[in-house]
């Protein structure tokens, strides 16, 4: 039960993120929702790779051979880097939108609704 806590956190974070993305009108808050969703996935991958009482997967002078899985950590590292790039691009789009429309409210971006 206790070891399932990370998975419950993932579920809660996912719901918070999806609610944020669907209900918020402020573009910056929507982007925060996307970031939370990313963190939820990252947490899920890391917790899949965790082994109870495991040590870091470095073989030199390892105290025991009970190690956590190295692949998920590599995946999450890559995914975090991608997440940073995504957020940067999205935020710079938001900046330009604020300059053009004077607002970051999604309701006010209606030039494309025809």
């Amino acid at each position: 039960m206790f070891w399932n806590l990370p998975y419950f956190t993932v579920v809660i974070l996912t719901f918070i993120a999806i609610l944020t993305i669907l209900t918020k009108k402020n573009l910056v808050k929507v982007l925060l929702g996307i970031n939370i969703l990313e963190s939820a996935v990252n947490l899920l991958i890391i917790s899949i790779g965790y082994r109870e009482g495991g040590v870091a997967p470095i073989f030199t002078l390892a105290p025991s051979t009970n190690m956590v899985l190295p692949t998920p950590q590599a995946l999450v590292l890559t995914s975090i880097v991608i997440g940073v790039a995504t957020s940067a691009l999205l935020l710079s789009f938001t900046m330009v939108i604020y300059r053009k429309y004077g607002s970051v409210d999604v309701e006010k971006m209606r030039e494309l609704r025809e």
Partner: peptide, 20 residues
């Protein structure tokens, strides 16, 4: 053009969520 950014951010939000 503001509209180009609007289209781009729409596309990018949708495809980012899909990728996640």
């Amino acid at each position: 053009k503001g509209r180009a950014i609007e289209a781009a951010i729409k596309y990018f939000i949708v495809s980012t969520i899909a990728a996640i």
